[in-house]
Nucleic acid binder design. Structure first.
Lengths: 353, 353
DNA sequence: CTGTTAGCGCTTTCAA
DNA sequence: TTGAAAGCGCTAACAG
């Protein structure tokens, strides 16, 4: 305890790093509650002198309130948690930045956790965030903790799912994966492609399932058969070898659809190594826009999701939930956009016999 | 309050969402402190039956401890804050992921905040993180809050600076910006370039200053004059127009060094639009590795920083500081690596008279 | 208009 | 081996 003498009055004051509301009250010679009123801007019936005294005491002591104590008492932290499945996706970066912006503007805080596509890690983080009394959660889930998700809902804990949907009564912000992929595949079918492949990560997350489903539906609608050998859903580590298998089939695909940016980064390595020409030997599209897509050796055709808008929507839904406003527990679907560049533009000549 | 009857004993228990330690104690018919002992694994003198009773009560009630309350009492949160200058840099993504990994492995948590290259936002976040009683901070600073930084140090608050150094007695994890840039520029000078440009964001952050300095030193060492018109340090928004000015000088640079990935994304737009050939018309290098650098129309020469290692180091320094271990308040310098690809490889023919 | 009082949910002596 | 009591820093009824 330091001793501070002001106007002849001697006061004990804790050292600067741990000034409390009590210290301010002592110095201003009012009670704790009055200082608390002041801090919470409940000036209704506060005299000008009291206000002034408190203000000076706060400055003098360089006082800052302890949010932990406040939150404990108020039973709210004004903080939300974000579980990101994998921070290395560009999509995740943009989404979490968007959510943070929304929170900042609304005096909330966001804490971002990277589940790293790992179910166990996701579970630990969800529990931790609850234990730290986050007011709510936005989850870009691994999709593999359904029991836990269900528990959260049963306890009426505010949660919004993003990107990856779950079959639960909860708001889901997603993009139109099925129609967007159908549209992309149709573009190729119209250009004459008959042997189209698709590569995604394992089908543990709904967007991957939906993209594969869109691929399938486009084929069915066009009356084309869906060939098992052209459909790969595997871990990043095995992707190159699976790709190599696909392009050594007797009937090689003329076009391949890539499930996301991480898939692209793998496949493009192999394409380069094997000197495959894009799109002459193989046409390519990627789900997810890449900032430099236009400057590739062959500019890349991509599907752009409105990531920023999706983040804003998810954040606003969550804050509404937290503030007990009425929120429909439905899917909020966002439209994504096919951006055609060279990599997909090979025309297949049809041979007439 | 719900009523729960167990073994003929009637107990009042709060509804599931807010089970407290007191509820567990009631159900197990022991005192709060005994439960607390159990939670903190102080089993020393605890009877097997007590342990068992508590265990069952916790499961029965689905109890989870409130970290806020614990932190308030213990005066530590086991959480650190990360201030990132701009999440859109790939470097920041990798660094924060690295720090999070380190924390996860050490039972700490990291909360990431995006200062968005904005001094005011940075200040707000630093204050918020302190008010939330974070045990320490890793700052990739805007560099414009020196007074605040100094205050933190005076209060002996654990802080580590990363990427951007400050002239304070504090641990700084940085890469070798000056020699790395000199090395890169020397590569061009040896190839015969005499008119080399450099474009960075404004000189508010030390890496930008250092990269420009490395550029300058390489010129001085080689006895080449440094031309003002070849040095640009400006906001992203003005970058394209400044670049266009540079390439309409009477003596056009034959090579340009780009300060980071965000600069590249701007400049490459203009290069494409103006149909400038790289490296024939203009050689290019970028500070910062880009995952797809090898697959550009002209594969990009880059300088790769050991971002992951830097994150690990910063995190370990900070945890040491927090645990009162001795930490030298010096610069911890990491070596970056020049990765030569085509974009820089133009040989200038020297004309002999 | 301001102070008293009683907690928020947990930890931690100290005593029994 | 366990429990009682005090208190972390703050807020909010309620009195006065």
């Amino acid at each position: 305890l330091d001793t501070l003498v002001i106007g002849g009055v001697k006061l004990n004051v804790k050292n600067t790093s741990r000034v409390t509301l009590q210290d301010v009250a002592n110095l201003a010679m009012v009670s704790k509650s009055t200082v608390s009123q002041y801090l919470n801007e409940r000036y209704k019936y506060m005299s000008v002198e009291t206000k002034q005294k408190i203000k000076e005491a706060i400055e003098e002591l360089n006082y800052r309130p302890n949010y932990l104590a406040r939150s404990l008492k108020q039973k709210k932290t004004s903080t939300i948690g974000i579980i990101v499945s994998n921070v290395l996706h560009r999509f995740s970066t943009v989404v979490s930045r968007s959510i943070e912006d929304y929170c900042f503007a609304n005096n909330y805080h966001a804490i971002i956790c990277n589940a790293d596509d790992n179910q166990v890690k996701e579970k630990k983080y969800i529990e931790m965030l609850r234990d730290k009394q986050m007011d709510g959660l936005i989850i870009i889930g691994t999709g593999e903790n359904e029991i836990l998700y269900r528990e959260l809902l049963e306890e009426r804990y505010p949660v919004v799912f993003l990107d990856r949907s779950v079959n639960l009564e909860v708001p889901n912000v997603v993009s139109d994966n099925i129609p967007a992929t159908m549209n992309a595949i149709n573009h190729w079918i119209k250009a004459g492609h008959k042997n189209i492949g698709i590569i995604t990560q394992p089908l543990t997350a709904s967007p991957r399932v939906d993209r594969q489903e869109g691929y399938r539906l486009a084929h069915l609608e066009a009356g084309l058969t869906v060939k098992k050998e052209y459909i790969v859903a595997t871990e990043i580590e095995n992707m190159i070898s699976e790709f190599k298998k696909m392009i050594t089939l007797t009937e090689i695909p003329t076009a391949i659809f890539l499930g996301n940016d991480l898939v692209l980064i793998e496949i493009i390595k192999a394409i380069n190594e094997l000197n495959i020409r894009v799109p002459e030997d193989l046409a390519l599209m990627v789900f997810d826009e890449i900032p430099t897509a236009a400057y590739f050796k062959t500019p890349l055709t991509t599907i752009e999701q409105p990531a920023y808008e999706m983040g804003q929507k998810a954040a606003s839904l969550l804050l509404d939930l937290i503030q007990q406003k009425k929120v429909e527990p439905k899917k909020y679907v966002f439209k994504s956009k096919l951006i055609i560049r060279e990599s997909s533009e090979k025309v297949i000549k049809t041979v007439h016999i």
